[in-house]
Design a binder for these strands. Structure first.
Length: 253
DNA sequence: GAGCCGTGGTC
DNA sequence: TGACCAAGGCT
């Protein structure tokens, strides 16, 4: 849920989710479409599908227990470098570097003296974090969490709170006089309004809203551009977020 | 490695 | 108002 999604938006949905499905086996026992429906407007609904797949994999391959090993975690659907290490470190206390977007920004500033990090690079990022990580298990887990939290709450992208920053006296960016970012601008995120993504979102909202099949006519009414509708619908079918039934389209069952 | 994938809040 | 950003991952 936290992938590319602000923590504050995740918390309430996570609490509902865990009350309904307290274990991987509980989630694995329901159709994947139920996970997609409960995901609601968290965004990137493929993550809901992947989380359901991971729950099935954990139930079948790991006896219903979330694995501790990074490689075993990485083998689960939807679990990549960040999430695998976050689970190993935060849930199990293992000593691994955990690097997310906040960590990258804090290291770029406090260590590198730069306003913004370079584009994410698995090898470089893990190496940089490894150099900072304390030796002890508990200390390393705490440090992973602390640097992420610092980036999320103080050393933010837009308005960093340097005056209240606990490491301001050791910050290379501050020592250098807060030089502005000089490198290439980050690729501009494509406009959402009018995009295929928006059409996908509209179709998904319709599928979540009813337990009856959504007809072609109903899909047609969601968006005026037929070519865009076709691309969005095909994409959802390919992704497994929608399935075609005799009466129309539904969430996967 | 680039492109794609939702939604909503901030400034 | 619109650009920017958010505990990324997959193809």
């Amino acid at each position: 849920m936290l992938q590319q999604t602000p923590v504050i938006r995740v918390i309430p949905r996570l609490e509902e989710w865990l009350e309904r499905w307290p274990t991987p086996a509980a989630l694995a026992a329901v159709p994947p479409g139920e996970a997609v429906r409960a995901w609601a407007t968290l965004g990137y609904p493929r993550r809901a599908l992947w989380l359901h797949s991971a729950a099935v994999e954990i139930t079948e391959r790991h006896g219903g227990v979330v694995p501790e090993d990074v490689d075993a975690l990485l083998a689960l659907t939807g679990i990549g470098d960040y999430t695998a290490r976050a689970v190993a470190a935060f849930a199990y206390g293992h000593r691994h570097p955990v690097v997310d977007t906040n960590t990258r920004r804090v290291i770029a500033r406090a260590v590198g003296g730069q306003a913004e990090p370079a584009p994410p690079s698995r090898g470089r990022d893990l190496a940089a974090m490894s150099l900072l990580l304390p030796e002890g298990r508990d200390e390393s887990a705490a440090f992973n969490a602390a640097i992420m939290e610092l980036g999320a709450l103080v050393c933010t992208a837009r308005k960093p709170g340097c005056e209240v920053c606990p490491i301001r006296n050791e910050c290379a960016w501050r020592a250098a006089g807060y030089p502005a970012h000089t490198g290439a601008r980050k690729a501009v995120q494509k406009k959402f309004e009018g995009s295929d993504r928006q059409v996908r979102g509209l179709i998904m909202a319709e599928l979540r809203a009813t337990r009856h099949p959504v007809t072609d006519a109903e899909v047609d009414g969601l968006w005026p551009d037929a070519a865009q509708r076709g691309r969005a619908l095909d994409g959802l079918l390919v992704d497994g977020l929608a399935v075609r039934t005799p009466g129309g389209y539904t969430l996967p069952h």
